[in-house]
Amino acid sequence: MNTTVKTRTTVKTRTSGKTRTAVAGATVLLAAAGGLTAAPAGAVTQAPSDTPPISHAARATAAETQVGTFFEEYRLAVLGEIDDPPQGVRRRYLSPALNLRLDDWQSRNDADPVFRTRAVPAFWSAREVAAAPGYATVALTQQWVDGPDREIRYTVRLADRRITDLEARPSP
């Protein structure tokens, strides 16, 4: 299965120094291992056999992409970082029946119906976990800086990529 990981831009900015350090460290390691040394003219060089070419990187499925895009936009709407309100984002990605169920869930639980809590997750990852004719199920794991992870299962109708259901997985 593929995994897509998203983080908030401010988190990436906050850790950009570590990213630069990691890249610099990887460059030093490559140079030390001979990976960045110049070869004599006409010499044949090879990449390590256990390093797959970049073209073999895992790609997200259409369902994973749809759920990830919805979740990112919805999260930004809740945080007020985009012009669309959360309900507008929901209308674009979710079926009308699911929207009604989420409104009902919100009124009974006094929490955000997508996050299933009052807090906004800092990180998330999505992976397709099941498929049936015309539908795919994507597990989206929400992560907070100082709390437990929560998995929400999304059902995506593949014909129009509309999200038709979501449910929280029971806590272990």
Score class of each variant (00 low, 15 high):
V5M: 02
V5H: 09
K6I: 00
K6Y: 09
T7R: 13
T7H: 10
T7A: 00
R8F: 05
T9P: 00
T9I: 04
T9D: 02
T9L: 00
T9N: 02
T10M: 06
T10S: 09
V11F: 15
V11W: 15
V11D: 05
V11H: 13
V11Y: 14
V11G: 01
K12M: 12
T13D: 06
R14H: 06
T15I: 04
T15R: 11
T15L: 09
T15W: 07
T15D: 06
T15V: 00
S16M: 08
S16L: 05
S16V: 08
G17M: 05
G17E: 05
G17S: 06
K18H: 05
T19Q: 10
T19G: 08
R20V: 05
R20K: 14
T21D: 11
T21S: 11
A22Q: 09
V23W: 08
V23C: 05
V23H: 08
A24C: 03
A24K: 13
A24H: 13
G25W: 02
A26I: 06
A26H: 07
T27W: 08
T27H: 11
T27P: 01
V28F: 04
V28P: 00
V28G: 09
L29W: 13
A31K: 15
A31S: 10
A31D: 09
A32G: 04
A32Y: 14
A33V: 03
A33R: 10
G34E: 03
G34H: 06
G34W: 11
G34C: 07
G34R: 06
G34Q: 03
G34F: 10
G35V: 01
L36N: 10
L36D: 02
T37L: 15
T37H: 15
T37S: 14
A38S: 13
A39N: 07
A39L: 15
P40D: 04
A41D: 11
A41N: 12
A41G: 12
G42H: 11
A43M: 13
A43P: 01
A43G: 02
A43H: 10
V44S: 10
V44M: 08
V44I: 09
V44Y: 04
V44A: 08
T45C: 03
T45F: 03
T45Y: 04
T45I: 11
T45G: 01
Q46P: 00
Q46R: 15
Q46S: 10
Q46F: 10
A47S: 12
P48H: 03
S49M: 07
D50Y: 08
D50C: 05
D50Q: 07
D50W: 12
P53D: 07
I54M: 14
I54W: 15
I54H: 13
